[in-house]
C-alpha cells in the first residue's frame, strides 16, 4: 500500500477515536437531534384544514420568515412541500458539520504549531498524510451522523405517519458530498495559514462567501446583497460546493436525474481539486512549526 495512504489510515483511526471520546461530538449530535425534534413537532402543530402553514407555529413562523427573507417564498414552500424532514435534516446536520469542520481546522493548525505533524513527518508520512487523515475522519463521522439522523427521522416519520419524501432521500447522499467539499476547504484554510485563529477565520469567511453566492441564486434578494452576490458568483461561483448542491437539488425537484448526478460528480471533482491544492501548499510551506 502507498505509504502516504497507509499513514493517513493509521492517523485517521486515532483521530476518529479521539473525536468520539470527546464530549463535544455528543453535544453537537444532541443539539442536532433536539433541533430535529423541535422542527418535527412544530410541523405537526402547523397543519390546519388547508394544509401546512408555517405561520401557525411560533418556531416555524420564525424560521419560515427568516428563510422567506433570505431565499423567497417559493423556495420555502418547496422546502415544506414534502413535510418537515428536508429542512429538519439540513438544520439537524449543521451542529455536527460545524463541530467537525471547525474542530479539524483548529486541530490541524494546532498540531502544526506544536510540532505534532513534524514529528509524524519524521516517519513514513508527510503533511498530506496528516490532512488526509483529518479528512477521512470527518467523512467517517459525517456518515455516522447522517446514519443517526436518517434513523431518527425514519422513526419520526413512521410515528407521525408522514412520508420522508424523495427530496429528503436524495439529500442524504447530497449532504455527504457537499459537506466533504466544505471539509476540503477547511483543510485548505488550515494548510494555507500559520495559526488556528487565522485558519478558522479564513474557513468561516469561505463558508460565508459561498452562502452569499447561494443567496444570490434566489431572485428575491435585492440591493447591496444582490449586487455583491452577482459579483461573487461571476468571479467564483464555480468554486462553491453550495452552488452544486443547489444544482443537484433543483435536478431532484424538476425530476432531472442528470442534474443531480452532475452536481454530485462536480462536487467530487471539486473536493479532489481542493485537496490537491492543499497538497501543493503543504509541499511548498512544509510542516515545520
Amino acid at each position: 500500500m502507498n505509504l502516504r495512504i497507509h499513514a493517513a489510515r493509521v492517523i485517521a483511526r486515532r483521530k476518529t477515536l479521539e473525536t468520539v471520546l470527546n464530549p463535544g461530538f455528543y453535544i453537537a449530535q444532541t443539539a442536532g437531534l433536539l433541533l430535529g425534534y423541535i422542527l418535527i413537532t412544530g410541523f405537526t402543530g402547523a397543519i390546519d384544514s388547508s394544509g401546512f402553514s408555517f405561520e401557525l407555529n411560533p418556531v416555524y413562523d420564525f424560521v419560515g420568515r427568516a428563510m422567506v427573507g433570505a431565499f423567497g417564498r417559493t423556495f420555502v414552500d418547496k422546502l415544506f412541500s414534502e413535510g418537515p424532514f428536508l429542512l429538519a435534516l439540513y438544520i439537524s446536520f449543521l451542529p455536527s458539520f460545524f463541530y467537525l469542520s471547525i474542530n479539524s481546522v483548529f486541530r490541524f493548525s494546532f498540531e502544526k504549531k506544536v510540532g505534532a505533524i513534524e514529528l509524524i513527518s519524521y516517519g513514513p508520512a508527510d503533511g498530506t498524510s496528516c490532512f488526509l487523515a483529518s479528512y477521512v475522519k470527518d467523512i467517517l463521522l459525517t456518515l455516522l451522523t447522517i446514519a443517526i439522523l436518517f434513523i431518527y427521522f425514519a422513526v419520526a416519520a413512521f410515528n407521525n405517519n408522514i412520508v420522508l419524501g424523495s427530496r429528503f432521500l436524495y439529500s442524504v447522499p447530497l449532504i455527504l458530498f457537499t459537506s466533504s467539499a466544505l471539509y476540503a476547504y477547511g483543510i485548505l484554510a488550515a494548510v494555507a495559514t500559520d495559526n488556528a485563529v487565522s485558519a478558522i477565520s479564513l474557513y468561516m469567511g469561505i463558508v460565508i462567501f459561498f452562502l452569499i453566492i447561494l443567496m444570490g441564486t434566489f431572485s428575491i434578494v435585492s440591493g447591496y446583497v444582490s449586487t455583491l452576490s452577482g459579483v461573487f458568483t461571476r468571479i467564483a461561483g464555480w468554486l462553491s460546493p453550495l452552488f452544486y448542491w443547489n444544482l443537484s437539488l433543483t435536478g431532484v425537484e424538476s425530476g432531472k436525474a442528470g442534474f443531480f448526478i452532475t452536481g454530485i460528480v462536480i462536487l467530487s471533482v471539486l473536493t479532489g481539486i481542493v485537496l490537491f491544492a492543499s497538497h501543493l501548499i503543504v509541499g511548498v510551506k512544509g510542516v515545520r512549526k
Binding site: E18, L21, V114, G115, A116, L119, Y122, D126
Partner: peptide, 23 residues
C-alpha cells in the same frame, strides 16, 4: 521518498506529547 524515512529514527528536543496525552 517516504520509504527511506522508515530507516531513520528521530528523538526531537521537544515532544508534542500534549497532543496525545489521552493515550
Amino acid at each position: 521518498r517516504l520509504d527511506l524515512r522508515k530507516r531513520i529514527g528521530v528523538v526531537p528536543e521537544n515532544h508534542p506529547h500534549g497532543m496525545w496525552s489521552w493515550m
